[in-house]
Amino acid sequence: MTEGTWISDEDLTAYLDGEAKDALRLKIAAALEKDTELQARLAALTLDVDMLRASALAAFPPPPPMPSLPAANRSRAPLGMFGAGLVAGLAIGAFTFATFFAQPAPPEGWAGFVASYQKLYTAETLNAIDQQPAETQAQLLQVSEANGLDHGNLPEVEGMTLKRAQILGFKGKPLVQIAYQRADGTPVALCIILSPSQDPMPLTEGENKGLQTVRWNRDNHGFLLIGDMDPLPLKQAAEVFATAL
């Protein structure tokens, strides 16, 4: 992101937040002296953070009374054992979680993790990504290095626009997310985890956290195509990706 001459909005944000490393800070400061377009982009990102913080802190409602809590659970007794007693001490809220916690949630695996993450994406999230093709290509090379697949020539899928590629992680394994946006704005993601423990699996349709999914495993990679869309076009897109990767 900070290589070469291109200065991204993320770089400018880090600069404004005092988080840019020296080399980047100096590079931006030097460019700002003569680059009017960069000055305009910086102005479009400028925010009165002190005012925002002060206003937000003033506007938040005070916290509810602190729940009466059991002693720290050194013996790791099931939470449900004290859940019932706890309810009496809770002064707030229409919901209690005693029942919820009585049964530990089953492990979700990486697909569940991805589905939770993908649920956060909206059309607006992707609309906000406006990066140069060269930057996207550089990201694809980075993710190729992370998982050993060649993402440099991703196939075109009709009706889906490539927005961004990034490396996430799940239990220490690289998890690549390639974000697409459909013509109607719907976010779709192709996610690939590098894990030797994946059993081979053909294209398999499913649903996860209300999102439509197609999963398949090959060699050391698990693939997941996920989005809030009809099953058929998602399956067709998955077939294109499965053929190419």
Binding site: E10, T13, A44, L47, D48, M51, I129
Partner: peptide, 25 residues
């Protein structure tokens, strides 16, 4: 990813927040 989210948020807030003309960073 934190940077991407903040950059996108800054753009939106810059346009919509009241009184953005005061001392800013």
């Amino acid at each position: 990813t934190v940077m991407s989210r903040l950059a996108a948020a800054r753009k939106t807030l810059n346009q919509n927040m009241p009184d953005q003309k005061r001392s800013s960073r």
